[in-house]
Simulated assay, not measured.
Amino acid sequence: MKIIKRVSILPILVLISFLLVSCDMKDEEMSESKTYSNVYYTIKYPSNWREPELIAPKVFFLKDDNKCSLDIKALPYKDSIEDLIPKDESEECIIDGNKGYKVKIEENNEIITFYLIQKNDMLFEMMFKSQVDDYKNCLASMDQMIKSFEFNDFESMSFANWNQFTIENIEVYYPNNSVINDTIEEWGKDRVEAFNYITEYLDVQWEYEPIKMYVFDSEEHGEQYGLQLGFALPGYNHIFTLHNQYPGHELAHCVSYYINNGERIDSALINEGLATHLNMTGKDYHRMTADILQEKSYTIKLLGDDFRKNEDAYTFGASFVKYLIDKYSLELFKEFFAQNQYNEEESFREFYDKEGNVLVNEWMDYLKTY
């Protein structure tokens, strides 16, 4: 019998103890603030925080001194969130008239505060992070931002009228008159082929709920639903994709989540590099990167926030991940990838016994002879 495991919305919460705190909001207003708004909500944030960055499916806010951050995810979720969080491990909150839940955890010298709220079949997950020593200084900003949060007048993101095509462990949802209407079987088989390759490559035995893939005709089509395509929601087993996106990328995000029960290094370089490496495109990312380096003649900076500043970030990431796997083994890479160390540099030192920059320089030297 196939075992279907329930997918937890906050897998990290089952691994560590919870610190419960009050949900009361402070009365003071932000003296100086800016406003961010999208299809679903409006929120004010302090003027000494950076402009928010959209990294699908989340909006990311960061204080100028990097000591506090907030990311907000909005995603379809019809089931009750009350089933997701044990009552004795959270505290109820009211945010803009809607009941939600608050959970505060301390891990790796960080304090992380989660808020979960549901409205119109949408789940909103807000996550504040700060170092333990900075928490008190960040608390007022956190409370004020939550207090300013307001839902906009949006309709439920309904896929009720979409067609469904199920093939093995993948459920494909697509609208009437979709560009894949006449090729849905072939489209589905390509994704199953990618799924099977990725699960075998990463040695993941699939005992989980099927992956739901919502297929859109264009970026404009996604924007009608308030979505910036494409992206995956690992742990939820949801993918929101353009019809012509590479078969393997988002599937790799979902499958790699289960290498070690949802534990993943907090590194865009490693997560996006692995997913691009498993794109199923047949591209030689070493050759592509070597050609780019020869043509542009510049030093690549891959670590931390620098990764996304590269125009060819995903190509570089795929090449770097393949280098780590080929030189140091896939098994070591999986241990490095699937663990709860959220500091990228410390993870390199712990698993590879080298600084991240040393490994990047090794990789670049290798490419010179490729």
Rank of each mutant, 00 (worst) to 15 (best):
L84K: 13
D71G: 00
M30A: 13
P76E: 04
E28M: 12
S33M: 06
R50V: 10
W49G: 03
E82K: 06
E29G: 03
D88Q: 09
K44E: 15
S31W: 07
K58M: 08
S31M: 11
D88S: 14
E82C: 10
V59G: 02
S31K: 14
F18L: 11
D79V: 09
E89I: 02
T42K: 12
D64G: 06
S37T: 15
G97E: 09
E32I: 13
D71I: 00
K87S: 12
P57M: 02
V59E: 00
I85T: 00
R50Q: 14
D88C: 01
K58F: 07
K44C: 09
L20S: 11
D64N: 15
C68Y: 01
S69V: 02
D79C: 03
E91N: 11
N98K: 15
Y77V: 02
C68A: 10
D88A: 05
N38G: 11
S33G: 08
K87V: 11
K58R: 13
I95H: 00
K63P: 02
V39I: 15
G97D: 07
V21T: 13
K44P: 01
D96M: 07
M25G: 09
T35I: 15
M30W: 06
L84W: 09
L54T: 09
F60I: 04
N98E: 14
C68Q: 04
F61C: 05
M30E: 11
K87P: 00
D24A: 05
V21R: 08
K67Y: 01
K63C: 06
E32R: 11
T35M: 14
F60M: 12
K78P: 00
L20N: 14
E29F: 09
Y77T: 00
I72W: 01
D64T: 14
P46I: 05
K26M: 07
S37W: 12
